[in-house]
Design a protein around this nucleic acid. Structure first.
Lengths: 197, 197
DNA sequence: TGGTACATGTAACATGTTACATGATTAG
DNA sequence: CTAATCATGTAACATGTTACATGTACCA
């Protein structure tokens, strides 16, 4: 046996495994924006990648702990509110760059709305139209937000990489809007009579 | 105490909780296509909803077990390969219709490619172009498949609900293609010199 | 100085993914 | 009849989500 490290120890501080996309994103943000605490990172992540990468505060805290015990981060001393500032280590930087270099996975689609549409014939009259209207409104609002944000990003002279990710959001929402507009008219028929009974 | 049912019992056969989108989809498919075994259902699901709802065989088996113990399905006797045919019960049908009526959740985006693009400046020269080319190719292929499939669905006279879900896929892939085409030219620059080590 | 609302972090739970075990079919 | 391969199902693990506990700052 060359190594004296046992399995129990490895399970606590497994430094060797690759990152997942969430961990990579957090390391990348910490590296770029500088050291910060969990709650700040949560806010930053929501702003910067929230549009296309869903994550929760809880998840961030867990990942910070795991990344620290893996040697990818160091944690500063806790302040009065027991929050600590995390800093990317050399190993963390290497792991991040390795993840980046390896290339992203394919996306795994999750569109509950399309499940509803697929079984739309099983809905009572008018209900599908309600659902579609509601979702169409949300997407229209989001498209407007994205466009406003894009104008703002251009104004303050932000770089092409951030703008490219926002451009994706815009093209996506445009496609969704078009899809809504092209749906068969019968999908959008409200329950005309108010159906007594 | 009005009820004599204790907690241990509820944890085994909790019939009351609502469905998630995966369970609803499985019930809907079983209801529409008729009773079938786990492996058949896995194939059917992949074909019918795989485009916009990612799921694995394992997940299907687990959900079938859970739905059965919840009273939403009944399982037939096992055949030589210990596969059983599952049938939707009245309670299962009610739960499915209830999920459908309540309306779908918003989608939670997960686009690893955009994480890579965001940090694209940290990649070695040419690597981002490679990654983009690879993903663009995959999406172009998928768009072609969807279009062929759409023509086929029209030919065999399939209903408007299924075609609406496919239409979403087509509009989405068109948007993705357009986004790729509009990316700044510098993102697509391959490593020209071959960079001597 | 007490109380209320909010911020922060934690732990339990639900879901999704990967890796394995088992047995049946088929080729030799 | 035996071995290899494939189909099917199971169980362990990783990740994501929800609900809770703790304490701090602000306000009366």
């Amino acid at each position: 046996m060359l190594s004296t490290v046992d399995n129990a120890m490895l399970s606590t501080m497994d430094s060797q495994r690759g990152l997942n996309a969430t961990e990579a994103a957090l390391l990348g943000l910490l590296r770029e924006e500088g050291p910060m605490a969990g709650s700040q990172l949560a806010q930053t992540a929501q702003t910067v990648i929230g549009e296309y990468w869903n994550l929760t505060r809880s998840q961030i805290y867990r990942e910070l702990t795991a990344l620290t015990s893996g040697g990818f981060l160091t944690a500063g001393p806790p302040d009065p509110r027991r929050s600590r500032v995390y800093t990317v280590t050399a190993a963390g930087e290497a792991a991040f760059l390795e993840w980046l270099q390896a290339g992203p996975a394919d996306m795994t689609p999750r569109l509950p709305l399309l499940i509803t549409v697929l079984f739309g014939a099983d809905l009572p009259p008018g209900r599908l139209a309600e659902i579609l209207d509601e979702h169409e409104r949300r997407h229209r609002d989001r498209l407007a937000e994205y466009r406003a944000l894009d104008a703002e990003l251009i104004r303050i002279g932000v770089g092409p990489y951030v703008r490219a990710t926002l451009a994706f959001g815009i093209r996506f929402e445009e496609a969704v809007s078009r899809w809504f507009a092209e749906l068969p008219a019968e999908f959008r028929q409200r329950d005309a009579g108010g159906g007594g009974g």
